[in-house]
Design a protein around this nucleic acid. Structure first.
Lengths: 217, 217
DNA sequence: TAGATTGTTAATCGATTAACAATC
DNA sequence: TAGATTGTTAATCGATTAACAATC
């Protein structure tokens, strides 16, 4: 009894959530109140059972045979699950073009991220501002993170500096790291690293393309 | 006989390649000629057997018991596999901060991507240049892709415009799409879409963090 | 009622990990 | 030789898909 880990949301399922949310919002805008798993599956090119299981795992209300699931309930539950409504505070390190892109992305705050400070390892840019956030010297990282109780660090510095910055963030009490540097970071077990390796993604795309063209010819 | 799909490189293995390459380059800079799977596994926090299998799958030369694998052979084979040496041509659509970041990323050309044209759906920016690439109006997409035989399209436009742009790219004969818009794109079966959904990644990070803090407290 | 849709149990698939003999 | 390391076969694990009874 009470083994209610039953319909846990897996990592893969979590990846699908933002796409469900996108589709559900479209339906909500059209004032459609319920939707079935097969319908969403069709729109997103997913398996029907998979969608149903995902919905069952997150929805606080059961689906109804024939009718489907409540659009608004699903949206609420998914947005809650992904933390869209209460933004985590984060610090960003690096001032290159990726850093600019992240800081410029007004949307992030709606998706659970509030950047409260930015740092640079390069003394040149320090003191300047990007999108209203002042750039601080990187030796202040640990201190500021600890003082402000920030739990997320975003790394956009070049590969060579990434590990050092990472260590500073960890020293400052950060628990999760969003890493845009194309390197593996060594961290203690309890730290979560999410790698966003654009070069790796690109390589995958290129490889797949090559394969596809080979089989086609 | 001749069922030589034996040690195929899986999608997951492909994802690990750039990290192997990073480690191998470090070794090469130190003039180290061979390396064992357990050593690399330790550095990257991976399973030893997994690394050995990955190496075996890509290496044109077998590993030697006791000695390990040739660093330079592995590097050559992996870079070849990922297409680092012969860049695919691509077009980019959108001129927001992510587009700027991609265009500014000098590194991409070394990793198999050469952006030959950029487009914008917004008439304002047309005619201007970003990093030496002139911005063209988006109604030229299909034509130019077809004429230049470009096979990769990069979408960085807002969500609402992504599907339209996608259709134009497909009409132009593009075979692979690197999609930075946070939406699902509908495409014919033979088209490869790789989604780079930063908002989704962020949500995952936030969710994991929440879970981690819950179990810790 | 008939039929679409749900929820659940079982089968399948793919990737990772374990076990172990072969080899330099 | 002894021992580290490879390569391969088998076991495990997790996620997806199929099958089907329950239900509105």
């Amino acid at each position: 009894m009470y083994e209610y880990n039953k319909n846990a949301v897996t990592t893969q399922a979590l990846h699908r959530m933002p796409y469900y949310i996108q589709q559900l919002r479209i339906l909500q805008n059209e004032n459609i109140e319920t939707v079935s798993a097969p319908r969403i599956a069709e729109r997103l090119n997913l398996n029907e059972v998979q969608v149903r299981k995902d919905f069952a795992a997150v929805s606080s209300v059961k689906g109804k045979p024939k009718a489907g699931f409540s659009v608004s309930e699903l949206l609420d539950n998914m947005e809650e699950l992904l933390g869209y409504n209460n933004a985590d505070e984060a610090v960003l390190v690096g001032t290159g073009s990726i850093a600019h892109a992240i800081l410029a992305h007004e949307g992030f705050q709606n998706y659970g991220l509030k950047i409260v400070a930015a740092f640079d390892t390069n003394t040149d840019g320090i003191g300047s501002e990007i999108n209203g956030i002042k750039i601080l010297p990187s030796d202040k990282i640990s201190n500021l993170c600890r003082r402000m109780q920030v739990h997320i660090g975003i790394i956009t510095v070049p590969a060579q500096q990434a590990q050092v910055v990472c260590d500073q963030l960890v020293a400052g009490g950060v628990l999760a790291i969003w890493n845009f540097a194309p390197v593996h970071l060594s961290v203690p077990d309890y730290i979560l690293v999410q790698n966003e390796n654009l070069v790796a993604s690109l390589a995958m795309l290129s490889k797949h393309l090559k394969q596809a063209m080979k089989t086609k010819i």
